Amino acid sequence: MKKIELTTPENIDVEYTLADLGSRVAAAVIDLAIQGFLLILLAIAIVLIVIYAPDFWDEYLAWIIAISILINAVISYAYYIFMELNMNGRTPGKKILKLRTIRNNGQPLTLKHSAIRNLFRVFLDMLGVGVVSIFFTKEHKRIGDFAASTIVVVENDIPYPLENLTEGSLFNSLHLSEEDNKLLQDYFVRKNIIINSSILKNKLEYYLTNKYENPDVLKNLGDIFSS
């Protein structure tokens, strides 16, 4: 699989594996199947209204059509935005295939980025333009990815269980500031994909051990960094 190197806003070089055409298509098929199921439920609801409530159908036909169009738009477009923002750049299909959408600088998606990339999905990808673009571009991007400055990568295994950092007694015993908590968590989540992570580890360990002089904190920091 092809690798790509990104520089984060913190000037940290991070290496990701690009998602290939096969995995992206497979993820898209899964998402389309979910959307298709939701649309079938909508169609069944309309049929039931026609059969069992014909008077209601005749009286509120315009409203039913308008609401159906709105629901269809939500399923076709807002589905991706909602999933990506609530699943950290993933949809159910991407989660199963272990893919994630991020920004070109390695940061998570925002509403603006997700809205732009998926707008192109609705109007162009259904015509096959997205597949062609992924196949022939160096970074395997859709047109929407170019417009939104996003990229789809393969998820790397988290080297240290995040729950140990957020809930475990060892991490809680450190009593770090909220900012340092996040700094430490980010390091352990990313250390497998950071280029020259050992240098960053030494700098982070030096910074924390000099800031917190409590012997128990220093011991637990040593246990965490040696894990």
Score class of each variant (00 low, 15 high):
100 R>M: 11
61 L>K: 14
193 I>Q: 15
6 L>N: 02
136 F>N: 10
97 L>G: 00
190 R>Y: 11
99 L>G: 05
192 N>I: 04
90 R>I: 05
31 D>Y: 01
6 L>R: 01
23 S>H: 02
153 V>F: 08
187 Y>P: 03
163 E>Q: 12
221 L>I: 13
219 K>F: 12
208 L>P: 07
143 I>R: 01
130 G>Q: 00
126 M>P: 00
148 A>Y: 08
189 V>Y: 07
66 A>K: 10
135 F>V: 11
48 L>Y: 12
220 N>A: 07
59 E>W: 03
172 N>M: 15
224 I>R: 01
225 F>W: 08
26 A>G: 04
111 L>F: 15
3 K>H: 10
90 R>C: 14
28 A>I: 00
179 E>C: 00
168 G>Y: 10
154 V>T: 12
112 K>D: 08
134 I>E: 00
6 L>V: 15
226 S>H: 11
180 D>A: 04
108 P>H: 07
50 V>W: 07
68 S>N: 12
150 T>R: 06
3 K>Y: 10
4 I>T: 15
89 G>S: 08
127 L>G: 04
211 K>W: 05
113 H>C: 06
211 K>H: 13
192 N>R: 13
227 S>Q: 13
183 L>K: 14
74 V>R: 02
107 Q>H: 05
227 S>L: 11
191 K>Q: 15
219 K>V: 10
168 G>D: 10
37 F>N: 05
169 S>V: 12
34 I>Y: 07
20 D>K: 05
155 E>W: 07
66 A>N: 09
71 I>G: 01
51 I>A: 08
156 N>H: 15
177 S>L: 08
150 T>I: 04
34 I>K: 11
221 L>V: 05
170 L>Y: 05
95 K>I: 09
191 K>A: 07
10 E>T: 07
80 Y>D: 05
143 I>T: 10
126 M>T: 13
122 V>R: 08
195 I>D: 05
209 T>A: 05
132 V>W: 04
171 F>Y: 15
132 V>H: 04
24 R>W: 00
75 I>P: 12
135 F>E: 10
162 L>K: 14
42 L>Y: 02
